[in-house]
Design a protein around this nucleic acid. Sequence first.
DNA 1: ATAAAGTCTACTATGTAGATAGACAAAGTA
DNA 2: TACTTTGTCTATCTACATAGTAGACTTTAT
Lengths: 133, 133
Amino acid sequence: MKISSKTEYALLALIDLARHAQGGYIKIPDICERNSIPRKFLEQILITLKGAGLVRSRRGQDGGYTLAGDASEISLATVIRLLDGPLASVSSVSKYFYTKTPIEQNEKLISVFREVRDYISNRMESTTLDQLI
Amino acid sequence: MKISSKTEYALLALIDLARHAQGGYIKIPDICERNSIPRKFLEQILITLKGAGLVRSRRGQDGGYTLAGDASEISLATVIRLLDGPLASVSSVSKYFYTKTPIEQNEKLISVFREVRDYISNRMESTTLDQLI
DNA sequence: ATAAAGTCTACTATGTAGATAGACAAAGTA
DNA sequence: TACTTTGTCTATCTACATAGTAGACTTTAT
């Protein structure tokens, strides 16, 4: 029922990039310092973000990171799913969602959690980076 | 962002007890069988529930468990908090909730998560066992 | 060439989830 | 009283995830 610090750092880093979008490529140490993120940890996170096409990078002097597209195209849901996996809030919700629910499972209980999951999903899907600058 | 199976089992067990409220004390093996819960695991969970005053127990022949009060007095929130801890969905939300938010923290980001946490909280607080039978 | 970046691979520590095992205690029943 | 049936307590275990750290390597601008 919580978000990992990996995801939290990823979001802070992306927002940092969005804020400094005009400044060209932003260096890892700058992002780290402004957001209190451990350097080596952020490196890994950025590589994941790059793999997903959310950011671009350049090496060497004047290198660094920058958003690959517009901040309005990146939702919280995208980032969370990338780093933390599915948003489901109870294991059965995702496990049995597409199959028949076992008789033992409580339909009403499942539906409460499904409702919560849908709310979270909508909220995260509809919030984009540009709204967080 | 998910509920542990411990909590899931606890809820299933409590609902089971609520369903069989007329039948006096319900035995652990019966609950296990009806809900596919590992026996020794459920034992521990029930002891926690008992410690919190949600259920009562009796040993020996005709022993077992029963709800301590009315099913309408037990909310999902109570059970989840008891077994999984706070409902907060991002570490900073609970960590900094009562203190000054560090400048590095993104106010808007925090408020999105706070909003989600509040929604979950309300939903879980207002859903009680008797609605799940 | 060289310095300043990012990149890749590996490792480690710590905690938590999800159990399992077995001795023990109480309560009812013959 | 002895026995059986139930819950209770304590200890232990394995697997995996989280949250990082270390260091050698590669690319690029000057």
